[in-house]
């Protein structure tokens, strides 16, 4: 084959690739634009008419909060128990969800599972748990258990168990099996092998994922409060539905929620850094 043929071939291939790439981009942009137009048409208010008033509501809240700035600390203190409840919901749900997720992961990893035949079943369970949005379980449980933090905890924990079941089992795939063989050779039972051979290897990764999940769950817990599961979201909705006149309270809650999310994100970020890069000696 002559050199020129090869060059032509290569150029043709590049051109084809570029056309495909360009075509993909065009299709994608068309999808975005038409999707935006459909969403705009189905929205109660239009995008372009609403755009000018986006700032109105925050401006109302801020101006009222500034006018009544002396009230803010009082509102914050009054909302503190609700904030603590939201944090508690997130922490308990993360704890319980991670425990269940660990169990699911141990059962869903080939080579580690106690009952290898159940591996596909465990995976499907994680998939379904992960797929259910928290709000679905929360609303059904609120109907049965009444409003309050417990439905939110159960809802978030189930979703967390599914998500962690998947992430943890991915961590488990990389476990070094030699310590397990060693433990098996001295007659360790399955639970001893897992507890002494696997957990020490995976603990830093597990913890890191669990902390990341805690950040997500605090947001979820605030949102669930908004639909009736107690905590700061519930207080926020009450202040919001009252509207003008209670915006200082809404502003105080906004600020507190924002601060809590940022603080937890920062702490967990630092802790995760330490877990992945090792503790400074």
């Amino acid at each position: 084959m002559a050199l020129i043929d090869i060059r032509d071939d290569y150029l043709a291939q590049t051109r084809r690739k570029r056309i495909y790439g360009g075509l993909l981009v065009v299709i994608f942009v068309a999808m975005m634009v038409s999707g935006f137009r459909v969403a705009d048409a189905r929205n109660a208010g239009g995008f372009w008419t609403g755009l000018s008033s986006v700032g109105d509501f925050p401006a109302d809240v801020v101006s009222e909060a500034v006018a009544k700035v002396a009230n803010l600390p009082g509102h914050m203190v009054r909302a503190l128990p609700a904030m603590v409840e939201t944090l508690n919901i997130a922490v308990v749900a993360t704890l319980l969800g991670c425990m269940a997720g660990t169990a699911l992961a141990m059962g869903a990893t080939r080579g580690l599972a106690r009952w290898p035949r159940l591996v596909p079943l465990m995976r499907r369970i994680s998939d379904v748990f992960r797929a259910v949005p928290e709000i679905v379980i929360a609303l059904v449980l609120i109907f049965i258990l009444g409003g309050g933090p417990v439905p939110a905890v159960i809802a978030i924990a189930i979703h967390t168990a599914g998500a962690m079941g998947k992430l943890f089992s991915e961590v488990n795939e990389n476990v070094d099996l030699k310590p397990l063989d060693g433990l098996a050779s001295v007659g360790a039972t399955w639970s001893q092998r897992i507890w002494l051979g696997v957990i020490p290897q995976v603990a830093p990764n597990y913890l890191s994922y669990a902390l990341l999940r805690l950040e997500v769950n605090i947001r979820a817990s605030a949102i669930l409060g908004f639909v009736g599961a107690g905590g700061i979201g519930y207080e926020l909705r009450n202040a919001m539905t009252f509207g003008q006149g209670k915006f200082d309270q809404a502003a105080a809650i906004f600020l507190m929620l924002f601060a809590a999310i940022v603080v937890v994100d920062q702490i967990s970020g630092l802790a995760r850094n330490r877990l992945t890069h090792g503790a400074p000696l």
């Binding site: 969403a39 109660a44 208010g45 926020l236």
Partner: peptide, 21 residues
């Protein structure tokens, strides 16, 4: 990231009304 989707949803639904947008 810290403000969170919940708060954005509240603010935006005041301007654009309820809906997918």
């Amino acid at each position: 990231r810290g403000v969170d989707a919940l708060i954005f949803t509240i603010i935006l639904s005041r301007a654009f009304g309820p809906g997918p947008l």
